[in-house]
Computed example of a mutant assay.
Amino acid sequence: MEKESINLKKVVLLAGALAAYWIGSGFSTGQEVLQFFTTSGTKGILAALIFLVVMSYLSYTLYGVGQKEKFENPYDVFEYYCGKVLGQVYIWYSVALVYAIFVVMLAGAGATINQYYGIPTYIGTGVIAILALGTTLLGVEKLIDIIGVIGPVKILFVAIVGIAGIITIFGQPNLLSEASKLMPTLGFKSASSNWAWSGALYAFLALMVSIPFQVDCGKSAGNVKEARTAGLVGTFAFTIAIILLVIAELVYYKLIVGKQVPTLEIANHISPILGLIFSILIVVSIYSAVASFLLMTVRKFAPDRTKKFNIIATVLTAIGMFFGGVLPFDKLVNILYPIAGYSAIVFTCFMIFKELRCRSSVNDDQKNSELKV
């Protein structure tokens, strides 16, 4: 039987960790939301609701299985759902993907710091990489504690930008419909030509890059109910952040044309002080996500805080610093993220099949025990 007690502080921490994990450079700079949601105009808000429905089930399941199975290595979840052979394929694909997105996030860090502070891109990339490495070396439990606090702060500042957009709409009620009509003509890259599919695809993207992390978070919870609640709360909070950012990007669409970091342009327009705070927040967002992705990559090869772990983490950071400093950020997001989303669809089918089979087995056991009685 599951325990009914829930530690509210732990739920917030684990939900915040999930939000912080997802709010990396792609999200905090506005590029992800722009390409997956805002380019669809006001239908992007409906796409966010599709994301909420799909991702709520997936997070609820992964947090729960992480607590129930308590995998020694979080990548074991792939073999749990897909079997030994296909599970190994997914393990190595996931490791490669998470590391590739780690490099993408470093590129986003360089672009952000360069745009706001005028510091050379490679220096910004290097600073974030070194900070992320230092956090990674502390281990997974300490990382969850750190980024679990950062997550709610990120959402709060995204909310400020969104609320400013909503206030602007009250004065110019036709602004959203005007922006929706013009979006396809402004030259923005789009993840998909169909708004509903974009929402679902983003959910599968979020799934594919966070499977081992969600399993680790679930394992850290006190019980299954606490784990599942944290997964749902984290997904809901992240969806609210998506919707608020869509509104802001639509309202301020003229400002963000041709910009690598749309959120920074919007925040600067609202207030130079907010722009300064937001630039720091984006850097913190990127740092926390980069540290998470690096740790999840290294966890495949060695346990936390071992000599082997430290050496691999340092080598992978150095490689990421080099490539993150020279690759174009927006093109990487447009190519890499949709591919990750498509690959997650097959894994979701395996998840659903396994969960249904487990429930069927539990029901059969209950019937057999009742017959014996």
Rank of each mutant, 00 (worst) to 15 (best):
I6K: 05
V11L: 11
V11T: 14
Y21T: 13
G26S: 15
V33R: 07
L34I: 02
Q35Y: 04
T39E: 06
S40K: 15
G41A: 11
Y57Q: 02
L58A: 09
S59L: 13
V65W: 00
E69D: 03
K84T: 08
V85N: 14
G87T: 07
G87P: 08
Q88T: 12
W92K: 11
F102A: 05
V103Y: 06
L106Q: 10
A107N: 05
Q115L: 03
P120I: 02
I130G: 05
G134Q: 14
T135S: 08
E141F: 09
D145M: 09
I146A: 15
V149E: 07
I150H: 00
I155L: 02
L156K: 07
F157Q: 02
T168A: 06
I169D: 09
P173V: 12
L175N: 00
L176Q: 07
S177M: 01
M183V: 05
S193A: 12
S193R: 14
A203F: 03
F204A: 03
P212G: 14
S220V: 08
G222A: 10
F238V: 06
T239I: 08
T239W: 09
I240W: 03
I242Y: 14
I242L: 09
I243M: 08
L244M: 15
E249K: 04
L250Q: 12
V257M: 08
K259E: 03
P272Y: 02
L274G: 04
G275D: 00
F278Q: 00
V284E: 02
L294I: 03
P303V: 12
D304N: 02
K308R: 15
F309I: 02
A318N: 01
I319V: 15
D330F: 10
K331S: 12
I335W: 11
Y337D: 13
Y342E: 04
M351Y: 09
I352Q: 01
R357H: 10
V362D: 12
V362M: 14
N368P: 12
